[in-house]
C-alpha cells in the first residue's frame, strides 16, 4: 500500500512543479514527473509478490508471472511521453527565441 502512496506523492510533486514554477523548462520537467508517476503506478498495479519476469522461454512453465499487460501499455505510454516532451521542448525553445526569456510571467501576449 505504501508504494501506491509514494506514487501519489510523486504525482503531487509533479503537479506542484507544473503549477508553481515559472520557468518553462521546469514546467516540462514537471510534466515528465507526472507521466513517470502514472507509469510507475501502472507497473505496480500489475505486480505480484515474488512474481517472475513475464517472458516465455523454453525451460520455464507459465507460473507466478507478474501481469505483462501493464508493462506493454506503459511502454506505449512512455513513447507517447517522449513525443510530447520533444514537442513541448521544441516549442519552449522557439518561445525563448521570440521572447528572450523562459519566465512565464514575462510571456503574456495573450489576454482577455
Amino acid at each position: 500500500m505504501s508504494v501506491y502512496f509514494l506514487c501519489l506523492v510523486l504525482f503531487c510533486i509533479g503537479l506542484y512543479c507544473i503549477l508553481r514554477k515559472r520557468n518553462l523548462i521546469k514546467i516540462i520537467i514537471g510534466i515528465a514527473i507526472v507521466e513517470y508517476a502514472v507509469n510507475l503506478f501502472f507497473i505496480l498495479v500489475g505486480y505480484r509478490m515474488n512474481g517472475r519476469v513475464p517472458i516465455y522461454s523454453p525451460d520455464q512453465t507459465i507460473r507466478d508471472m507478474v501481469d505483462p499487460l501493464p508493462q506493454a501499455l506503459v511502454l506505449t505510454s512512455i513513447v507517447i511521453g517522449l513525443a510530447v516532451t520533444a514537442l513541448i521542448a521544441a516549442i519552449a525553445m522557439r518561445v525563448y527565441e521570440k521572447y528572450g526569456t523562459f519566465d512565464i510571467t514575462k510571456i503574456k501576449k495573450l489576454k482577455g
Partner: peptide, 30 residues
C-alpha cells in the same frame, strides 16, 4: 509567431496533464 507559440505551450501543458488524468482513470479501472 509569439502568440501562437505561447498558446501552443499552454495548450500542450494542460492537454498533457489532462491525458495523465485519463490514463490514471484507465489504470484504476484496469
Amino acid at each position: 509567431e509569439q502568440e501562437e507559440l505561447e498558446a501552443a505551450f499552454k495548450y500542450a501543458v494542460m492537454g498533457t496533464v489532462a491525458s495523465s488524468f485519463i490514463l490514471l482513470g484507465i489504470v484504476f479501472l484496469y
